[in-house]
Design a protein around this nucleic acid. Structure first.
Length: 564
RNA sequence: GUCCCCAUCGUCUAGUGGUCCAGGACUCCGCCCUUUCAAGGCGGCAACACGGGUUCGAGUCCCGUUGGGGACGCCA
């Protein structure tokens, strides 16, 4: 490492599952390091004790690993992590000595000072400023008595340590993506470096760690852009090197708001407020709910939110990597889509199309900040779905089945009456029709007809009108005879069944389509299903006959005009 | 409100002053293939926010307006 290698880092705070924005940042950090033959390190920003715990760290590492993003240095997890350069530890909670040393130096040189206001006092000042439509910026009072403050501090009086930004000069951030970004003089306040409880704030920790860990390139979301001048100030004060910064465009929801982990909480909270529900009937303890409901920043566990959503009949947006994993997306599809959010290869295929489908190896070989975009991007679920479907289709039978079962084991489907032979057959026939793993056994998915009971699947009125109620003869009129054919069918396998139906049509000089669609609608309720033979075979003769009977009974009534 | 960022089809984007009456992908729609349904193939709809400059020439450069987003925490 003699030749100053490029070093990137991903530095999440362990507040739960990795979300889409974080995943994209990690991916770009990884790709840039790979491309440049540098190193990618993972650091856990757990300075906020209230929001960090060990489970969350594991969760985060597991999410990263599932995506296949490998870190060269950092917490050890599987074959990722380690500390070959001796720059660890990688948990900020274990790096206190570094921060204290920096703080000590700053204090000595009057670049930091103790401030004794309580949070309540500061809040009051903020509210007052807001009332007067002024900005609130904390500044060291002009009559500040440094000696006295230091004495109080050394005696152990509770206080925070703030940065002394006396010069308050204009600053320019040289961003690799945005170019030069200027900040007016006087915009920065004396921000906090060390909290009352002795822990370092993000600003201090990030600057110290990036220096000590030899980080050369900082990639992070654009929401951090306003923090960068603070970091510049600190670096200057401490005589540190300045990293190259690249602020990535923010990832937005479909409605244009910032995609945030709290969105799922928000959705459930809104639903809960709108309808007056009895808390005691909900799957989360009511005192916990009360607190969560009252506190906008509070978050429930992913599983708790899912339970609530189910209880309320809500569809929650996928935000975290875990949400997508649970929904049955493939990590390679996810990575592909993520890479396209704010970056593009800019490469044309021979047929004139843009290169859009690629794997991590391609990214590692071609990624560059020069091709990163500046503007924020909405996350397009349709595209994600389409990419996933393609990756699913590309898997190959064996791989596909194996991976499906790995998924299904982790996220068991709700009980359905299907035998394993049936699910196996469904899996194969539904493959080109499914966009996610969860789609296969979902009542709303293309296999819904099989998952639902013989008397439970709904009839699509349009399909009934088109294929059962019209024509000469109508589908409904054909069904009894078709039922007889199927009842007499010995070998109830796809091919023979289809042949029998074809023979039936030939004998009556009917278009196959007429009989096929009538049966399809009768047996699945819809004009779309897998191949007719497969559809009938997977249900089995008994179910098919029962379903035709039900259809005859229900649709005859519903379409009085269907008979001449 | 203040500061900062952004602005090409509904969405993701290509486009770095002429080769753009703007290309691709996703969605939607049509056609072909299939003795049925998908998948697949082919095609269609659809955009340079607005106003000023600069220039022989502007989606591309500059300014403004409008719109969107972010930040304003003893969170990160």
């Amino acid at each position: 490492m003699a030749d100053a290698p490029l070093v990137t880092r991903f530095a999440p705070s362990p507040t739960g599952h990795l979300h889409v924005g974080g995943a994209r940042t990690a991916l770009f950090c990884w790709a840039l390091a790979r491309r440049a033959g540098g190193r990618f390190l993972l650091r856990i920003e757990d300075t906020d004790r209230a929001r960090s715990d060990e489970t969350n760290v594991k969760t985060l590492l597991e999410d990263l690993r599932w995506l296949g993003i490998h870190w060269d240095e950092g917490p050890v997890h599987g074959d990722a992590g380690g500390d070959p350069r001796g720059v660890g530890p990688f948990f900020q909670s274990a790096r206190g000595a570094h921060y204290e040393a920096a703080l000590h130096e700053l204090l000595e040189r009057d670049l930091a000072y103790p401030a004794f206001e309580t949070e309540a006092e500061l809040n009051a000042l903020r509210t007052e400023a807001q009332r007067q439509k002024r900005d609130f910026r904390y500044r060291r009072p002009s009559d500040f008595d440094r000696a006295a403050a230091l004495a109080r501090y050394r005696e152990g009086e509770p206080c925070v340590l703030r940065f002394n930004n006396a010069p308050r000069e204009a600053l320019t951030v040289e961003d690799e993506i945005l170019g030069a970004v200027h900040f007016e003089a006087d915009t920065l306040d004396d921000f906090v470096l060390r909290r009352r409880d002795g822990s370092p704030t993000y600003h201090l920790a990030v600057v110290v760690d990036d220096e000590k860990m030899g980080v050369t390139h900082v990639l992070r979301g654009q929401e951090h852009l306003n923090n960068t001048p603070r970091h510049l100030l600190l670096q200057r004060a401490l005589g540190y090197r300045v990293q190259r910064y690249a602020h990535l465009p923010i990832i937005l929801n479909a409605d244009g708001s910032k995609m945030s982990k709290r969105d799922r909480d928000k959705a459930v909270r809104a639903a809960l407020r709108k309808r007056s529900v009895d808390f005691s009937e909900l799957p989360v303890a009511s005192d916990k709910l009360e607190h969560w409901l009252a506190n906008k920043r509070a978050q429930l566990e992913s599983a708790e939110l899912d339970a609530l959503a189910t209880a309320l009949g809500l569809q929650l947006p996928e935000i975290s990597v875990e949400d997508f994993r649970r929904a049955g997306y493939l990590p390679e599809a996810m990575l592909n889509v993520l890479a396209l959010l704010g970056w593009s290869p800019g490469e044309k295929l021979e047929d004139g199309r843009d290169l859009e489908r690629f794997d991590p190896d391609y990214l590692a070989a071609h990624f560059s900040l020069a091709r990163a975009r500046r503007s924020s991007a909405r996350f397009d679920r349709n595209k994600m779905l389409a990419f996933n479907q393609q990756h699913l289709t590309a898997l190959g039978d064996e791989d596909f089945t194996r991976r499906f079962h790995v998924w299904a084991k982790r996220y068991p489907a709700p009980p359905h009456g299907l035998s394993s032979a049936q699910t196996g057959a469904l899996l194969q026939m539904l493959r080109p029709r499914c966009q996610t793993f969860s789609n296969f056994l979902s009542v709303d998915g293309p296999g819904g007809f099989a998952v639902r009971g013989d008397a439970d699947y709904p009839f699509d009125p349009k399909a009934v009108t088109r294929w059962l109620a019209t024509g000469e003869p109508t589908g409904l009129e054909l069904l009894p005879a078709l039922r007889d054919v199927l009842a007499a069918q010995r070998d109830f396998e796809p091919q023979p069944v289809e042949r029998a139906i074809a023979a039936f049509c030939e004998a009556r000089s009917l278009e196959l389509k007429v009989a096929a669609q009538a049966l399809r609608v009768a047996v699945t309720g819809s004009a779309r299903s897998p191949g007719l033979g497969e559809t009938l075979a997977v249900l089995g003769r008994d179910a098919v006959l029962a379903r035709i009977r039900r259809c005859l009974a229900e649709c005859q009534r519903a379409t009085p005009g269907g008979r001449p």
